[in-house]
Amino acid sequence: MEYVRVCSTYGAGFWYVPGTDSCIQLSGRMRADYVYVEPKNGRTDAYGVGNGRYKDATGIKARARLNVDVRTPTDFGTLRAYLRFQIDKNTGNQGTGSGALVDKAYIQWAGITAGQAQSFFDFYADDLNWGSFGGNAGSDASTNLLAYTATFGSGFSATISLEDRGNRQINANYYDVAGQRLPDVVANLRVDQDWGSAQLSGALHQLNSGTIYNPWGGSWGTRVDTAYGWAVQGGVKFKLPQLGAGDVLWLQAAYADGALSYLGITGNNTTGKVVNTIADGYIVNGDIKTTAGWNITAAGVHYWTPSVRSTLWGSYTNVSYDSPVKLDNALFRDFNVWQVGSALIWSPVSKFDIGVEVLYGRLERNRFDVVDYNAPIYVKRSEDSIQTRLRLQRDF
Score class of each variant (00 low, 15 high):
5 R>Y: 10
6 V>W: 07
16 Y>N: 07
17 V>N: 06
18 P>E: 08
21 D>H: 11
22 S>R: 06
24 I>L: 14
26 L>A: 08
31 R>E: 15
32 A>L: 13
34 Y>F: 15
38 E>S: 12
43 R>G: 08
44 T>M: 15
46 A>Q: 12
59 G>Y: 06
61 K>C: 06
66 L>W: 04
69 D>V: 06
70 V>T: 12
73 P>C: 04
77 G>M: 03
77 G>D: 02
82 Y>M: 00
82 Y>Q: 06
86 Q>N: 12
89 K>Y: 11
93 N>Y: 00
94 Q>E: 14
95 G>F: 02
96 T>F: 12
96 T>K: 13
98 S>P: 03
105 A>T: 07
107 I>D: 10
110 A>K: 05
110 A>D: 13
111 G>E: 10
111 G>V: 03
113 T>F: 04
113 T>V: 10
116 Q>M: 13
117 A>P: 07
118 Q>I: 09
120 F>Y: 13
120 F>T: 03
121 F>W: 01
122 D>N: 06
124 Y>C: 01
124 Y>L: 01
125 A>E: 07
126 D>M: 06
129 N>Y: 02
132 S>F: 02
143 T>P: 03
145 L>D: 01
147 A>G: 05
149 T>W: 02
149 T>Q: 12
156 F>C: 00
162 L>M: 14
167 N>H: 08
167 N>P: 06
170 I>L: 12
171 N>Y: 04
173 N>W: 11
174 Y>C: 01
176 D>H: 14
179 G>Q: 09
181 R>T: 07
184 D>A: 03
184 D>C: 05
185 V>W: 07
185 V>Q: 08
186 V>H: 01
187 A>Y: 11
189 L>Y: 06
189 L>W: 04
195 W>F: 08
196 G>C: 03
197 S>M: 10
214 N>E: 04
219 S>K: 10
223 R>M: 08
223 R>N: 00
228 Y>T: 11
233 Q>G: 13
237 K>Q: 14
241 P>F: 01
241 P>K: 03
242 Q>T: 09
243 L>Y: 13
244 G>K: 04
245 A>I: 01
247 D>F: 02
249 L>P: 10
250 W>Y: 15
253 A>H: 00
255 Y>S: 08
257 D>K: 12
258 G>N: 00
259 A>S: 12
263 L>G: 00
264 G>I: 02
265 I>L: 11
267 G>I: 04
267 G>Y: 02
267 G>V: 07
270 T>H: 08
273 K>L: 03
277 T>R: 08
284 V>P: 09
284 V>A: 11
287 D>Y: 10
288 I>Y: 05
289 K>W: 08
292 A>R: 13
292 A>Q: 13
292 A>F: 08
295 N>H: 05
295 N>Q: 13
299 A>P: 08
302 H>E: 05
304 W>G: 04
306 P>R: 04
310 S>P: 09
314 G>M: 07
314 G>W: 03
315 S>I: 03
329 N>A: 09
329 N>C: 01
333 R>W: 04
342 S>W: 05
346 W>M: 02
349 V>G: 01
353 D>P: 00
354 I>Q: 10
364 E>H: 05
370 V>F: 00
371 V>H: 05
372 D>E: 05
374 N>T: 12
374 N>D: 14
375 A>V: 06
376 P>F: 08
376 P>L: 09
376 P>M: 04
378 Y>W: 14
378 Y>D: 12
379 V>M: 10
381 R>M: 15
382 S>P: 10
382 S>A: 14
385 S>K: 14
388 T>I: 14
394 R>C: 07
394 R>Y: 15
394 R>M: 11
